Computed example of a mutant assay.
Amino acid sequence: MATTRLVQPTPKKLWLAAIKPPMYSVAIMPIIVGTAVAFGETNKINQSIFFTFLISAILILAWENLSNDVFDSETGIDQNKPHSVVNLTGNKSLIFWLSNLCLGLGILGILLIAWWQQDWTVLIIILFCCLLGYTYQGPPFRLGYQGLGEILCFFAFGPLAIAATYYSQTQSFSITSLAVSVFIGMSTSIILFCSHFHQVEDDLAAGKKSPIVRLGTATGAKVLKWATTSLYALTVLFVVFNLYPRWILLVFMSLPFAIALVNHVEQYHAEPDKVNNSKFLAINLHFVSGILLALGFILPH
C-alpha cells in the first residue's frame, strides 16, 4: 500500500516566505502612483526625491514586517508559522534591533527629502504612517487583533502615503491624488483582508478578532467581491467627474486578476490549504492595477 509523504519546505523556501518579496509592492506602489500623478499635473519629476522615497518606503515596510514578527511571537499567534523570521532565527532580540535599523535608515531618507525641500511636511506625514503601522501589532495597542488592521492599512498606504509622495514632488496637495489614494488604499487593504482566510484557527487561539474571524469565511468572500468591484466602480465615477484622466480606464485591463482572486476565494474560502495563496493573487491585482493607474497619468492627455 502506497504511503503519502509530506514534502517539507526547504530552508530557501521558508526564508523567501518569511521575507515576502512580493509584499514590497505595498511599499513601492504608492510612491510610483503618487509620483505619476504629480508628473501628470506638472510634467516634472525630481528623480533624486523619487528614488530616495522609494528606498525609504521599502526600508520602512521591512521594519513593519520584521517588528510584526517580533510582536506576534509574544502573543503565540505564530507558533504554527515556520516562516516567521523570529522562528527561523530563534533570536527575537536580533530581529527587533534589525527592524529598528531599517526604520532608522528609512526615516533618514525621508529626513533627507525634508532637508532638500526645507519643509518638514513629508516627514510629519510619514511619521504618522509609522505610528499607524506600530499600532497595528505593537503593544499596548495591537489594533490588528481587534480587526482594525484593514482600516489602518487603508490610511497608511493610501491617503497618507500618496499625499506624502505627491507633496515630495510638488510641495502641494491635490484632489486628484486624494482620489487616486482611495484606489491604492483599498487595493492594499484587500491584500491584508485576504491574508486572514487561511489562519482563522490560529487567530481564534490567540484571541485575534480579524475581519474573517468576525464575519466567517463565506461572508468574507462576499465582502471581498464587493470591495474588488468597488475599485472599478470608483474608477468610472472619478473619470466621469474629471478627477481621473480617461487613460485611467486602462485599469480595466487588470480585471482578469480581480476575477481570478474573487473566484479563487469564493471557491476555497473554507479550505485553508487552498485559500492560503489568495493574498498573492491580491498582490498581483494591486501591482498590475497600480502600474496601469500610473500609466494613465503619465501618458499624454
Rank of each mutant, 00 (worst) to 15 (best):
Q47S: 15
I212H: 05
F241D: 07
I212A: 08
S168E: 01
L237H: 14
G147P: 04
V37H: 01
L127Q: 06
Y24R: 03
G76F: 15
G185S: 11
A38Y: 04
S177C: 13
S56F: 12
V33P: 10
E41Y: 00
T35F: 06
Y24P: 03
T10Y: 14
R214G: 00
Q118T: 06
F183L: 15
L255G: 05
L59S: 04
A27N: 00
M29I: 03
Q169D: 10
Q8N: 02
C129A: 13
F96R: 14
L237N: 09
V236E: 05
P11L: 09
E266M: 08
A294F: 09
L261G: 05
S187D: 11
A62Q: 05
L98N: 13
I212E: 01
I283H: 02
L281Q: 04
I49A: 06
L14G: 01
I190A: 07
V86P: 02
S254P: 02
N242L: 10
A161N: 09
C153D: 07
L299M: 13
R214F: 01
L243N: 10
T217H: 02
D72G: 05
I162V: 12
Y268F: 10
G216H: 00
A27G: 09
I126G: 00
D203C: 06
Q79F: 05
F154A: 07
V239K: 09
A38P: 08
F287H: 02
M1A: 00
V33A: 13
I124S: 07
